[in-house]
């Protein structure tokens, strides 16, 4: 009896960890997409997550949208907001061939600005999504599985399947991959780079929007919810910068480790342990899980 309960405990935590990791993977892959093309850590991604979480919330609350339209609305909002951010904040730096640090500073500023927009319109108070799912959980062999967690995994799986297809077979997707390899050469090959960068931000924003709505449903809504983007940052570095698969793997690992740490030692000290694990990992395997080492210079 003792053995089965330990087993079901581990399975339970694995399920929780994988579903949390799935949402982190959505963040991390969106984060990594922009990193691959423009080679900077785009923290404004967090702002996009926050805005779309609130847009989805407004849709569900005021338009009484059911589950799927809410998810779609948030996702689309993310894409639109990210495109606007690219157009307003990053385009002119790119045109002037500004250094990477300017992108970085701008992205942090955009995160703060988008957060502040939420504070201005909604105040610093907390909100919860209306009940969009009827039954909250079911039990399989002593393991209780929340429907929301299933939803997270399904959403992530669908999103990644569509993304993988788009990157491999559509013209824009192929151009995004080419741009990740070398932006200048892609331009020389006659590809409209401005459009491709905008498209990259749009796709990355779609992922941010989806993760935003899911995070909003899983937790409460507050203006700083977008700061969860750092989970994507951690995951994409652990996974190996320059690799989308690596980012997703890093996110899954991060989700599982986090859930276990929180059950074992509580939410308080787990950041300290995650930090130590992260530094050790970076020292042992600086190229990340995927092993694609991204080079700044030849």
């Amino acid at each position: 009896m003792e053995g089965t309960s330990t087993f079901s405990f581990v399975v339970q935590q694995m399920v929780n960890g994988i579903s949390l990791g799935a949402v982190y993977a959505l963040i991390a892959v969106g984060f990594a997409l922009v990193f691959n093309v423009l080679k900077f850590s785009n923290f404004s991604h967090g702002g996009v997550i926050g805005i779309s979480a609130y847009v989805g919330f407004l849709g569900a609350l005021h338009l009484h949208l059911p589950l799927l339209p809410t998810l779609l609305l948030g996702t689309l909002a993310g894409g639109v907001v990210a495109s606007v951010v690219e157009f307003l904040a990053f385009r002119s730096i790119r045109k002037k061939r500004g250094q990477l640090v300017y992108f970085f500073v701008t992205s942090v500023t955009m995160l703060m600005l988008l957060e502040q927009v939420l504070v201005i319109f909604f105040g610093a108070s907390f909100f919860t999504y209306p009940q969009l799912i009827r039954t909250t959980s079911f039990t399989v062999g002593g393991v209780s599985i929340s429907i929301l967690y299933i939803l997270m995994m399904v959403c992530a799986a669908v999103a990644f399947a569509v993304l993988a297809w788009a990157l491999r077979y559509t013209k824009v997707g192929i151009a995004i991959r080419a741009a990740s390899n070398d932006l200048t050469t892609t331009n020389l090959m006659g590809v409209n780079v401005d459009f491709i960068v905008l498209a990259t931000f749009f796709v990355s924003g779609l992922l941010a929007g989806l993760s935003g709505v899911l995070l909003g449903m899983a937790y409460t809504l507050y203006p700083q919810i977008g700061q969860l983007v750092v989970k994507g940052f951690i995951a994409s570095v652990l996974g190996g910068l320059g690799s989308l698969t690596g980012a997703a793997m890093g996110a899954l690992a991060l989700g599982i480790v986090e859930v276990f740490l929180i059950t074992v030692m509580g939410a308080g000290l787990s950041p300290a342990v995650i930090f130590v694990l992260m530094v050790v990992f970076l020292l042992v395997r600086p190229q990340g899980f995927a092993g694609v080492s991204f080079k700044e210079k030849a």
Binding site: F233, I234, L269, S270, P271, A272, F275, V276, M278
Partner: peptide
């Protein structure tokens, strides 16, 4: 990233 993690660890 490492300094970020350090900062959050100190806060924790």
């Amino acid at each position: 990233l490492a300094t970020f993690g350090f900062g959050e660890a100190v806060r924790a």
